[in-house]
Design a protein around this nucleic acid. Structure first.
Length: 425
DNA sequence: TCTGGGGTCCTAGGACCC
DNA sequence: TCTGGGGTCCTAGGACCC
């Protein structure tokens, strides 16, 4: 029988911060998004205080202070490194680990013994990972991935399961579906939920009991797949993409945003450079670039504008110089200098991605590519040794007008030698 | 005043072709 | 005034996920 485990780190970002602040165990902790904008992770104690996912920080700042909630800016270097550690331990427990996100992975448990035996096996895994990394995890085991996700939520909710819940019989599946709100099912988002509510469906069991024809009419193929998975038919492939199909680098700007072309351009140059670097890291090139910038949708008191420009390349590239100059030119050409707008967010997307060993040339291409490539290689070598952007393009600038606000950042405990924790005697 | 970032998949509809 | 039909490809937008 096919059997999947889903391992899910509990309140991952908060747990990462707690590893280096053990005094915060049992206390409310939140982690903020970039620019200290919204709450994006909450410890159980913070959830109990009624703090919501995505809640703007400024709305609850005073409340957090009063209630003694520990607040952290997001520290993605730390989370990425901790994720690595968890995944590397998990990979020892299955012949096939499928990393689904920074804090979640599917384990193939097919043919690995009875579910009784697997339960004990998984509880051991939970203990080992918690002990080895300091990150608590929960595991759900079931015949389909959607049911495994559901099981993991039960594992998280009821301590008596010791971190592991298994849906292995028809009876348990039915019981779990009845207890589970349909809006919490993997694949049911806000829009689908609205429609389901309209039809009076509130539990996963009610949804699973509908006829497949009706489900497909109302929710198309994605909805039908979720329905099948709930009914025990395995049909979601999560096999991680060998290479990304698009790469996006974007940021919101602090405060009211940026109004000067020079400042937005500097940001866009840096986003483009980051996209180019990510392309080279996965040994790919892109055939198209999108540049966008827009004003804050929350500021109805000031004029709104949206820049959105596609660039199709004659010859695919991952070259920093080329991508940065294409992106900046596109931005300048769509900039309207007769009006003043406060741009709150901008970004660069590279897409139409192909491997870098199969580039289709162009008859009328005038660029000296071998030379450009040699320069790029030299720059990469220096930057690899000395850190990103040691050598950078002039347009990337140093004004830092667009830089993030991170007033509550923790240290790079695990990735920067100068910031590791010191032990007092 | 202050509201995240990075992805994938599916579908409808337009462009184009014969 | 009358004005085909069917196929493919591409893209934008909307849904979902973490």
């Amino acid at each position: 029988m096919e059997l999947f485990g889903l391992a899910d780190c509990n309140n991952f970002f908060c747990s990462c911060e707690r590893v280096f602040h053990p005094d915060l165990n049992g206390k409310p902790v939140v982690v903020l998004s970039n620019n200290d904008g919204c709450i994006i992770a909450r410890s159980n104690e913070a959830k109990a205080l009624g703090l919501k996912m995505g809640q703007p920080f400024y709305q609850v700042k005073d409340q957090l202070e009063k209630q003694g909630v520990a607040v952290f800016s997001s520290n993605y270097n730390l989370y990425g490194d901790m994720s690595h550690r968890v995944m590397s331990l998990l990979s020892g427990y299955t012949p096939h680990l499928d990393i689904y996100s920074v804090d979640e992975a599917f384990l193939d448990f097919s043919g690995m013994g009875t579910t009784e035996h697997l339960g004990e096996y998984a509880r051991g895994m939970v203990r080992t990972i918690t002990k080895g990394t300091g990150i608590p995890i929960s595991v759900g085991i079931a015949p389909t991935k959607t049911l495994a996700k559901m099981a993991s939520k039960f594992a998280k909710k009821y301590p008596r399961y010791q971190g592991v819940a298994i849906i292995d019989t028809e009876q348990k599946r039915q019981k779990a579906l009845e207890l589970f709100p349909v809006g919490d099912v993997w694949g049911i988002g806000r829009q689908f939920l609205k429609r389901l509510e309209y039809y009076g469906i509130s539990t996963a069991a009610e949804f699973a009991a509908k006829k497949p024809g009706w489900v497909q009419r109302e929710f198309n193929l994605p909805g039908l797949r979720t329905w099948k998975e709930l009914n025990g038919e395995n049909c979601i492939e999560t096999e991680s993409m060998p290479q990304k199909q698009s790469i996006c680098t974007s940021r919101s700007f602090p405060d009211s945003g940026l109004k000067e072309l020079a400042h937005v351009e500097e940001a866009v140059a840096n986003f483009a450079a980051a996209c180019a670097r990510k392309l080279r890291e996965q040994h790919t090139v892109c055939g198209a670039i999108t540049v966008f910038a827009y004003t804050s949708r929350f500021r109805t008191d000031i004029p709104q504008n949206c820049i959105y420009q596609n660039i199709y390349l004659q010859v695919p590239t991952a070259n920093q110089q080329e991508i940065v100059s294409f992106a900046c030119n596109a931005l300048r050409s769509s900039w309207n200098s007769s009006n003043i707008y406060f741009y709150k967010k901008a970004g660069v997307i590279v897409w139409d991605i192909t491997p870098d060993n199969t580039i289709q040339g162009d008859l009328f291409d005038t660029v000296d590519r071998p030379r450009l490539q040699a320069l790029m290689n030299a720059i990469d070598a220096v930057n690899h040794k000395n850190g990103h952007d040691t050598i950078r393009m002039a347009t990337q600038g140093y004004s830092k007008q667009w830089h993030l606000k991170t007033e509550h950042i923790s240290r790079q405990y695990t990735t920067n030698l100068e910031q590791i924790i010191s032990i007092k005697a």
